[in-house]
Amino acid sequence: MSTLEEVVVANNNFTVGLANKMMSDENIVLCPLSMLTALALVCLAAKGKTETQMKKVLHFESCSDIHSGFKQLLPTLINSDEYMLRINNTLFVEKSLNLSEAFINVSKTWYNSKPGMLDFKNHPRSAWEYIINWLKGNTEGNFESMPENSVDNDTNLVIINTAYLLANWTQSFPLTNTENAPFTKSNNEKVHMELMSVEGNFNIREIKDQMLSIIELPYGKRKNLRMYVILPDQYDGITKIKQNLTYEQLNDWTDPDKMKKEFIEVGLPHFKIDSTYSMKNVLYRMGMTYVFSDTKSNISEISDESLYVSDVINLVTMQADEDGTEETTNADDEFGFLSLKLPQTTYTADHPFIFIIRDLLSKCFLFYGVFQKP
């Protein structure tokens, strides 16, 4: 395996690990890659049991050159003329701590990132305001807030990572088709949603033994970016899928070569999910405990003083509308003649489902989400 492939496999395994632990009744969207990139920077500085735990949770144990792999992967994902993917990561550290010049230089070289020094101890409110301004200035206004209790005067080091995507469907959903429709939540409660629909040729697959079906919704002309909607047969089937999901399954389910192209009618909720998560407890449950401990953490390559991670804050926004985003549609010309046909079947996401956005060329999972209610 190349170093790039090793990092992709680590990211995809990490995605499944997060999926298994993110148990919530709310809508969820995560960018595991943005978290993995930020945590790789900390792992670069970790020693002893802290390093061992981090490498295990992040699936870096078999990676020969983690940082070179990220250096190769990220530009291939970010530098696209068909979509806009933005990932930002910064470590904010208590200003009274002395940082290693070697670490600062390495973080610039490998991740184009420089740690920010803030006075959490004496002025946590001002530190919080600084981070808010950083968010506004570095995310084109996509993120302008964060819970004030995300930092306090005991904050030692906080990792802020953000991710958002602007991309248009290969085949847009006609605005005139959007209608009010019922949606059944996992508790069998019926609510209403805006349901988008379109007829076209789409890759689809049914996994009978898992009682679910998957559809592939590509973006752009070249279709290198694709959303996979994983829909259980039953309205309350989402919990079982999340708890039992494996890397092998998710890799297999999102393999376009194992799907069948059919002319179908697709129904998908019109949604936007804005998520801000404190990931400390999730990562802790996954086995990364030492790095969050003021007495056990060993990230001495950052500073020879006592240093530990106070939290990892993940901010992600994801939208699905008729065009895919607010931009102009980029429809595939091949769909023009299909209006003369009748759909063979329908695929309607009218109850909770999982969605994955994957880059076809690298096979990297970019976003993981769960839509549970309008």
Rank of each mutant, 00 (worst) to 15 (best):
L4M: 15
A40T: 09
Q319P: 00
E144C: 06
L250P: 05
V312W: 00
A46D: 01
I160E: 04
K21E: 11
K121G: 00
L268D: 03
I230C: 01
E322S: 10
S2Y: 00
D294N: 10
E199N: 14
T76W: 08
M35E: 06
Q234W: 06
N138K: 15
T76Q: 15
Q372E: 14
S100C: 06
E26F: 07
M318E: 01
A46V: 08
G200Q: 02
E179N: 12
Q210W: 13
L217H: 00
A10N: 13
Y368R: 04
Y368E: 09
M193D: 05
A320V: 15
I273S: 09
F60D: 00
M286E: 05
V151C: 08
K373T: 14
V106I: 11
F292I: 09
E101W: 09
S150G: 11
V312R: 07
K71R: 13
A320Q: 10
H192L: 14
V8H: 08
P182L: 10
M54F: 01
D209Q: 11
K272V: 06
E248T: 14
T328C: 06
P75R: 07
R222H: 12
T239P: 00
S172M: 12
E301G: 09
S278T: 13
N201G: 02
L360W: 08
R222T: 14
V9F: 09
F355W: 03
M146V: 14
N89K: 08
T15K: 14
W110R: 15
I357K: 04
D321N: 15
P174G: 07
Y235L: 02
S64G: 10
N161S: 11
Q372C: 13
N314I: 02
L165A: 06
A45T: 08
L268E: 00
L97C: 01
D321C: 13
K221D: 08
K363I: 03
N11Q: 09
T3L: 02
M117C: 10
A167S: 12
D333N: 03
K21D: 04
L41R: 12
L361F: 05
A181G: 01
I264T: 03
S64P: 01
D350T: 06
V191G: 02
